[in-house]
Design a binder for these strands. Structure first.
Lengths: 136, 136
DNA sequence: CAGCATCCATCGAGATACTG
DNA sequence: CAGTATCTCGATGGATGCTG
């Protein structure tokens, strides 16, 4: 109670920062795009599309445009004739690797926690995690 | 090219883990709920609602239920008469603090990057970040 | 107090087809 | 090749009102 105002201010700032970061990585395909570019470094549109797999042109295009606006991705239209466009991460984009790792660690751990105990009770949760969305 | 299959497999696993983690923190209020419980440790429904501010009963209720299913939050119905329900983080829930910090760091840094250069070009982005969603 | 029921607006994303 | 244009659908969240 006594410390509430301080905590409130700080938490609110932090919460906003967290929301910024979440928004940055939001969208079903955003992390995958960044990962692909972390590994491959430079890819053009169709390569990226194949690399990721399952994403439509429209959605990928929108995703890239957003990342470009956020200065995560750099878009380079190649010289005439080729008709290709290359994408690569900016330095800022590359700096997201650490966060993605942290997310990955949490994701893995979470899956272990969920499946490690009381399977019956968490059946629905499991279905959600394994069945619908993130199936291999 | 040569290493592609390996990378593919590994990346896919990682991508799924990342999606799990993102899904875990998904929902507009989820990070705020976790933060509130990290700071306050134990809160009942209405306290939580006030602490967060701006969230409706319905949405908060749904958010808590989801977190409970994911073993992030523990729900304790208090003895008779009080009619209160307490919420607190599980150990697993508490372990999310590190990830939230990392997200916060990225969020802060991102805001600096976006506002640090070429303001004109990124006006739209700024509006998005400051105006609509994450305004103070 | 805690939370559910209902209605409604918005939005992300998939499918499909088309263009410079 | 690198997108854009529609259209549709489902999920999310806000507002409001009601209950044990």
């Amino acid at each position: 109670m006594i410390q509430s105002s301080n905590i409130h201010v700080q938490c609110r700032q932090t919460a906003i920062a967290i929301n910024d970061a979440m928004e940055l990585l939001a969208g079903k395909w955003t992390p995958r795009v960044i990962m692909a570019l972390l590994v491959r470094e430079i890819l053009c549109f169709t390569e990226l599309k194949k690399e990721i797999g399952g994403v439509s042109s429209k959605v990928l295009s929108a995703s890239l445009k957003r990342l470009e606006q956020h200065l995560i991705v750099e878009r380079n239209v190649l010289p005439i004739q080729t008709g290709k466009v290359e994408y690569q991460l900016t330095d800022h984009g590359k700096s997201l690797e650490k966060l993605l790792e942290e997310l990955s660690i949490t994701g893995v751990k979470h899956r272990i926690v969920l499946t490690g105990r009381n399977v019956t009770e968490n059946a629905r949760v499991e279905v959600k995690l394994y069945g619908t969305k993130n199936a291999l």
